[in-house]
Amino acid sequence: MSEIMSENNMKFLYAGIAIALLISVLAPFIASQDPDGLESASYDVIDEVKMAAMEEMDPVFESPVPDYAIEGHGKTGEVVAIVSGTLMMLVIAFVIGKLVKK
């Protein structure tokens, strides 16, 4: 029984990874070019002058892949950036899972 459960769990895991990678590949092609919900909501809440000042501030740290893209590579750079980020998150989740299991 345990062997069947483990096999089913592995199939479920592989299906989840495949779906995450599929979404990663398709995201640059189906994502909206308009500001996301959080960004557009901030314009409703924060004064325009204050928002402009915040946008001019230097960031605390630089993003390794700003705007989910590798500059100069178009959609291919976006796909590579998102897929690599997804894979990194999967590896981090796997490592944390192994550590918690101990």
Results as ranks from 00 to 15, higher is better:
Ile92Asp: 03
Ser63Asn: 14
Tyr68Met: 13
Asp34Ser: 12
Leu38Val: 03
Val95Ala: 14
Ala53Tyr: 14
Ile30Tyr: 12
Leu87Phe: 03
Leu87Val: 01
Tyr68Cys: 04
Pro28Asn: 03
Glu39Asp: 14
Ala31Val: 04
Ala15Asp: 07
Glu39Ile: 10
Met5Leu: 15
Ile92Asn: 02
Met1Glu: 06
Glu7Arg: 11
Ala20Gly: 00
Val83Pro: 07
Pro28Asp: 00
Asp47His: 04
Gly97Tyr: 09
Lys11Arg: 09
Val45Gly: 01
Asp67Leu: 08
Glu3Arg: 14
Met51Cys: 08
Leu87Arg: 00
Lys50Glu: 15
Pro35Gln: 00
Ser42Cys: 12
Ala31Met: 11
Gln33Leu: 08
Ile17Cys: 07
Ile96Met: 13
Val95Thr: 07
Tyr43Trp: 11
Gly37Tyr: 13
Pro35Arg: 01
Thr86Gly: 03
Met10Val: 07
Ile70Cys: 06
Val95Pro: 11
Ile19Thr: 05
Ser63Ala: 15
Leu21Gln: 07
Gly85Leu: 02
Glu3Ala: 10
Lys50Trp: 14
Glu7Ile: 08
Ser40Gly: 02
Met89Asn: 01
Asp36Glu: 08
Ile4Gly: 02
Tyr68Gly: 04
Glu71Tyr: 08
Ala69Lys: 15
Glu71Asp: 06
Val80Tyr: 11
Ile17Gly: 06
Val60Trp: 15
Pro35Asp: 00
Leu90Lys: 00
Ser32Arg: 07
Pro28Glu: 01
Ser2Phe: 10
Met88Trp: 11
Gly37Asn: 10
Lys102Tyr: 09
Leu26Asn: 04
Tyr43Gly: 08
Ala31Asn: 05
Ile82Glu: 13
Ala27Gln: 10
Leu38Ala: 08
Ile92Trp: 05
Met57Lys: 15
Ala31Ile: 02
Ala53Asp: 15
Met54Phe: 14
Lys101Leu: 09
Val80Phe: 14
Leu21Ala: 00
Leu90Met: 10
Ser32Asn: 06
Ala18Ile: 04
Ser84Leu: 08
Ala69His: 10
Pro35Thr: 00
Ile30Ser: 02
Pro66Ala: 02
Lys102Met: 08
Ala18Cys: 05
Gly16Phe: 05
Val65Thr: 11
Lys98Ser: 03
Met51Thr: 10
Gln33Tyr: 09
Ser2Glu: 13
Gly16Tyr: 08
Ser24Thr: 00
Glu55Arg: 14
Met88His: 02
Gly77Pro: 06
Leu21Trp: 03
His73Val: 04
Asn8Thr: 07
Ile4Gln: 14
Gly85Trp: 04
Leu26Glu: 03
Asp58Val: 06
Asp47Cys: 01
Ile23Gln: 07
Glu62Arg: 05
Ser2Tyr: 12
Met57Tyr: 08
Ala93Arg: 01
Ser63Pro: 04
Ala52Trp: 04
Ala81Leu: 03
Tyr14Glu: 11
Glu3Asp: 11
Met89Arg: 00
Val80Asp: 11
Met5Tyr: 13
Glu78Tyr: 09
Gly72Met: 08
Lys98Ile: 04
Met54Ala: 14
Met51Gly: 07
Gly72Lys: 06
Val100Glu: 06
Phe29Arg: 09
Val95Tyr: 08
Asp44Met: 15
Val60Pro: 07
Met51Pro: 03
Ile82His: 09
Val91Tyr: 06
Gly85Glu: 02
Ala81Gln: 07
Phe61Asn: 07
Val79Thr: 01
Ala15Ile: 09
Ile92Leu: 15
